[in-house]
């Protein structure tokens, strides 16, 4: 999962670098060539991508927590297995993305430390709580749905390792999205209580999900460089509109109402949503969401309590290497 809101490009520093190389680099981008780890790239390109890919990885890992909250309480064995497999997929995405970020020269440890120190961000959507089983369906349907909207264009991102990682991630995300929607269909065909549970979850997740696409284009400051470098291919508002247009009919099919009484369909068929409360978005981003503290505490606890295990693994690997060297010398 991922949010564009987190992308903040470095200022263009090509002036400090070899102008010829920079022009060549841009020409390759314009020709839709993939940039690979050993290729020359502007320092700002490297820094922007490291930040974006690592934030994406952190989001996958923190994103395991709200859904993990229901693994032990899933209502049937089939749902339990599917949810566990799904959360495991998110972990796999995280690992995959850290590996992609490492090709730009930062280690996973450094990147994780930055997140645990509160210096690196993760998607704000994971700072909302999962209160009922319907939240698990809604996250799959809407949060993964929004993530797919964001990530499909990233499959064509100019940086090769990120683009390739996204192809695999998108395949799994679209499976998760269908799985989530299927949970919603089941709830909406169920008892009044189940349907109310589904509606309540939609009410709580709708606006935070729209915020996943980032601030409106009118206030978004940094997309120019990312667009020029073909890291980003569509604007926040374009993707948000695409998502809303795709989602409204899905909600209608479920018999649920989008919690936006002012929403209307325009002459071109687009569903026009009401103004988003960006104050809430900023508050959550600033650390004041309902679960920011819990999420960070959970990640820090896992990291700290696992330290002795990682140390043991490293110590054993070192001992083993030493023994092998000693054996070879004999």
């Amino acid at each position: 999962m991922y949010t564009q809101a987190l992308n903040t490009a470095e200022t263009d520093d090509r002036g400090l670098e070899d102008a010829g190389k920079a022009a060549q680099f841009q020409a390759r981008i314009d020709a839709e060539e993939r940039i690979e780890p050993n290729d020359w790239m502007p320092a700002a390109y490297r820094k922007t991508l490291t930040r974006q890919i690592s934030q994406h990885a952190h989001s996958e890992i923190v994103g395991m927590l709200p859904e993990g909250n229901w693994i032990t309480r899933a209502p049937t064995l089939r749902r339990k297995a599917a949810l566990l497999a799904k959360v495991q997929d998110e972990c796999g995405h995280g690992l995959y993305l850290y590996a992609a970020a490492e090709t730009l020269g930062s280690s996973r440890e450094e990147l994780v430390d930055a997140m645990l120190a509160g210096k690196a961000k993760y998607s704000s959507i994971f700072n909302y709580p999962t209160l009922t089983w319907a939240d698990i369906g809604t996250i799959g349907w809407l949060v993964d749905g929004a993530a797919i909207m964001n990530q499909i264009p990233l499959c064509r991102c100019s940086y090769g390792p990120y683009a390739r990682a996204m192809i695999r991630v998108c395949k799994e995300e679209s499976f998760h999205q269908r799985q989530g929607y299927e949970i919603m269909v089941t709830l909406c065909r169920g008892s009044d209580e189940q349907k109310a549970m589904a509606q309540d979850a939609l009410n709580r997740w709708w606006w935070p999900v729209l915020m996943m696409f980032g601030p409106p284009d009118s206030t978004s400051q940094h997309s120019d460089t990312s667009t020029k470098w073909k890291i980003k291919r569509f604007s926040n508002d374009e993707l948000r509109q695409k998502f809303v247009d795709a989602t409204v009919p899905q909600a209608q099919y479920l018999g649920l109402s989008i919690p936006d009484p002012g929403m209307i369909q325009d002459a071109d068929g687009h569903w026009r949503y009401s103004e988003i409360d960006w104050t809430e978005f900023k508050q959550v981003l600033a650390g004041n969401g309902p679960c920011n503290r819990d999420r960070m505490a959970a990640r820090r606890k896992a990291h700290e309590e696992g330290a002795w295990v990682r140390e043991a693994a490293a110590a054993y690997a070192a001992k083993r290497a030493q023994r092998q060297t000693a054996q070879a010398a004999e």
Partner: peptide, 26 residues
Amino acid sequence: LSEWCGHAPMLEEDMALSNIALDLIG
């Protein structure tokens, strides 16, 4: 084992313990 998911000492073990849990639930 599924209780570890998201809380393991390293991501590789989040994956491994979840995998084993999935086998057992299956």
